[in-house]
Deep mutational scan, measured.
Amino acid sequence: MAAGGDHGSPDSYRSPLASRYASPEMCFVFSDRYKFRTWRQLWLWLAEAEQTLGLPITDEQIQEMKSNLENIDFKMAAEEEKRLRHDVMAHVHTFGHCCPKAAGIIHLGATSCYVGDNTDLIILRNALDLLLPKLARVISRLADFAKERASLPTLGFTHFQPAQLTTVGKRCCLWIQDLCMDLQNLKRVRDDLRFRGVKGTTGTQASFLQLFEGDDHKVEQLDKMVTEKAGFKRAFIITGQTYTRKVDIEVLSVLASLGASVHKICTDIRLLANLKEMEEPFEKQQIGSSAMPYKRNPMRSERCCSLARHLMTLVMDPLQTASVQWFERTLDDSANRRICLAEAFLTADTILNTLQNISEGLVVYPKVIERRIRQELPFMATENIIMAMVKAGGSRQDCHEKIRVLSQQAASVVKQEGGDNDLIERIQVDAYFSPIHSQLDHLLDPSSFTGRASQQVQRFLEEEVYPLLKPYESVMKVKAELCL
């Protein structure tokens, strides 16, 4: 049975990233139509530049190519590739079939990587351009969430054990800070992308030097003109047959890092959902379990974690691919890159769409948070109580021993009897502590235990987050809708 299948058929496997999760716009960027249309555009740009620099290419040939950029006979191309065992030459023939007058000058002087690699770089750039505003929107939604809850005390956790208090907004800023680093890295790697350009079979530009009869300047002009037509500021000066596969490492490393950030955020949300302090959106008709109707599973956060793990592992592909590119190139890269580049971007696209949807509907339960604080705060307040007693004339050592005994009794009630923490009640009825009984409410005010959390939130948002989001103001209103 021949390899390949009808990918629109229910009898043929289709990647869930495309069929179930990723956005239509990201799927289109990695589609065959987008790819092969870009090949034709690159052939047109090459012909236009070659004509401008004096090669015998007519206006009629150029116009014929322009008129057929979208006229792609995919069936013919597939048949040609089956016959020739070469995808680029299959599309040269297919393009030439609908451009008979231009057929002889299509791909003039070029090698397969002229269309293959340059198209990949265009796709990487455009895919990054799709991700950047999506990530900015996630940051914006979380920034709104953090600002609104900047002063809401909550129990902090280290080692997932109760620690000092923080605020809900401050905790959210930990998430935002990681995503801001990801946004900066995505922008950097996007701006650092260079075009492969017009380089020939081993990167020496020998074929173009021959076409222009040894004119170095025209060869350099050709490279520059096509690079500018493709919208790049610069091209690699040095290439082998391909652009260095280190570029793929750079791009997928940034995406993998984004995956790590999203995994951490969504894990926190899942843990908070278990504590009943916070939940992701839950639709009115949504079913959490087929057997347990009360369940409210954090399905979206779980999906993000599941896909983020996949995204983090994909960076190993370009690392290994770059390491086995012998001399000017081997074909070890080809099949692998067809999979890992598309999957990385479709996965990143999915987790950003999902995280935006989550961040637009996060639900906080202040009463649950308050109750958990009441359970733990008495123990945390013991040092403040000791200091207040010393100020009232008591002995630190005597007070410490009193607190120690009462704390152990209260802990026994919590752990052995399943009761509430009654340390404060014990202190309130103990005559030894009568000098500070009137101060206990103040000493137990949760806001006095959150330090500068709310001020940190305000400063972080104003100095770091809002300036970073400013270039994306025009796209901030787009909502994230999930079908599944």
Rank of each mutant, 00 (worst) to 15 (best):
2 A>V: 05
2 A>S: 12
7 H>F: 15
18 A>R: 07
19 S>G: 14
23 S>N: 06
29 V>W: 00
32 D>I: 02
39 W>P: 05
43 W>N: 09
44 L>F: 14
46 L>W: 05
47 A>D: 06
50 E>Y: 02
52 T>S: 05
55 L>Y: 05
69 L>V: 03
72 I>T: 06
74 F>V: 09
81 E>I: 09
84 L>D: 03
86 H>Q: 06
94 T>Y: 12
95 F>I: 06
96 G>T: 01
104 G>R: 08
117 D>E: 04
118 N>E: 05
120 D>N: 05
120 D>M: 09
127 A>Y: 14
135 L>K: 08
137 R>N: 13
147 K>C: 03
150 A>E: 06
162 P>W: 15
163 A>T: 01
164 Q>P: 08
165 L>S: 07
169 G>A: 01
171 R>M: 04
171 R>A: 00
171 R>L: 04
174 L>W: 14
179 L>M: 14
183 L>D: 03
191 D>F: 07
191 D>I: 12
192 D>V: 00
198 V>Q: 00
203 G>A: 00
216 D>C: 11
219 V>K: 06
226 V>P: 12
230 A>D: 03
234 R>V: 13
235 A>V: 08
242 T>E: 09
272 L>Q: 09
278 M>R: 05
279 E>Y: 12
281 P>A: 06
282 F>K: 01
291 A>D: 05
291 A>H: 11
293 P>Y: 12
297 N>H: 12
307 L>Y: 02
310 H>P: 04
319 L>K: 03
320 Q>P: 11
320 Q>D: 03
328 E>T: 14
340 C>T: 00
345 F>E: 02
346 L>G: 09
352 L>I: 13
376 E>S: 05
385 I>V: 05
385 I>Q: 14
387 M>F: 14
389 M>W: 06
390 V>F: 15
391 K>W: 10
397 Q>T: 07
397 Q>G: 05
398 D>M: 06
401 E>I: 14
410 A>F: 00
413 V>M: 10
423 L>T: 05
428 Q>L: 10
430 D>F: 06
434 S>E: 08
438 S>C: 15
441 D>E: 11
442 H>N: 14
444 L>W: 13
448 S>Y: 00
451 G>V: 10
453 A>Q: 07
458 Q>Y: 06
462 E>Q: 14
463 E>I: 01
467 P>G: 07
473 E>W: 12
481 E>P: 14
483 C>Y: 04
483 C>P: 14
